[in-house]
């Protein structure tokens, strides 16, 4: 194979489908998303995929690249195309819509199930809460807050493959950032939502999510934190 061409096999279709192969010119500093975009613009306009920001902010471009979930806009071809070959699949553990597009509804609904939205009890007339950036709980919260919702962790997690109702690393990580947010008042209601086998207790600490998170977050650490809070609450008799 020539050095200046990449051989790209892309999953075409939904749950049923097949790989289609394209040859794409190799460019310097080319990302996997650049390759997909080239194919759609120059070779095959029927190819479906998602992206928005192209700079690692929006979390919409994740795909399975040579077997691993990655954000494609910030993945350089030179880093992943072994022997000039790229194989692109949609993310695992989410229903396939078409080509590289998956249905992320369940993934995001689980954030809601994990009580992933902030609820405060102050009004605009109250004074602002003063929380020092050095506050230990604030630091824990800040460590997990940069999630872009790309789903790479979710697509990698084995527990979701075994138990489709498992909330998953991203939703649980989100819940943990809120558990440590002093202004939030959801408290035990959230802990009850994330305890149990579909929540933090389902996690086997294999850390596939940590391996694959493009933002280098630590969902396993967050889930371990939820496990500790759950056990504390059970010991205090607040949760049963």
């Amino acid at each position: 194979m020539s050095n200046d061409l990449i051989n790209v096999s892309i999953w075409r279709g939904g749950e049923d489908g097949e790989y289609q192969t394209y040859q794409v010119p190799r460019l310097e500093s080319q990302t996997v998303l650049d390759v997909v975009t080239y194919i759609q613009r120059e070779l095959d306009p029927s190819l479906s995929y998602r992206f928005a920001c192209r700079v690692g902010v929006c979390g919409s471009c994740a795909m399975t690249v040579n077997g691993k979930a990655r954000w494609t806009c910030r993945t350089h071809v030179s880093k992943v195309a072994e022997g000039g070959q790229l194989t692109l699949d949609p993310l695992n553990s989410m229903p396939r819509v078409k080509d590289l597009v998956v249905d992320m509804e369940t993934f995001f609904n689980k954030w809601a199930d994990a009580k992933g939205s902030f609820k405060g009890d102050k009004t605009r007339d109250d004074a602002l809460a003063y929380i020092s950036p050095d506050d230990p709980k604030r630091k824990i919260s800040s460590a997990g807050i940069e999630c872009i919702g790309c789903g790479a962790c979710y697509a990698t997690c084995d527990v979701i493959k075994w138990n489709p109702d498992y909330l998953g690393p991203a939703a649980l990580n989100r819940a943990w950032t809120l558990v440590n947010d002093e202004r939030d008042v959801t408290g035990l209601e959230r802990l009850a939502a994330v305890a149990g086998d579909n929540g933090c207790l389902g996690c086997h600490s294999q850390q596939g999510c940590v391996e694959r998170c493009p933002k280098s977050l630590n969902p396993t650490g967050a889930i371990a934190g939820l496990k500790r809070e759950t056990i504390k609450a059970v010991l205090k008799g607040e949760l049963s």
């Binding site: 691993k68 294999q206 596939g208 694959r212």
Partner: peptide, 14 residues
């Protein structure tokens, strides 16, 4: 092995 499972913590799990 270019596999999502090839990392120490997974081997520890197995």
């Amino acid at each position: 092995m270019k596999n999502i499972h090839n990392h120490p913590n997974y081997w520890a799990f197995i």
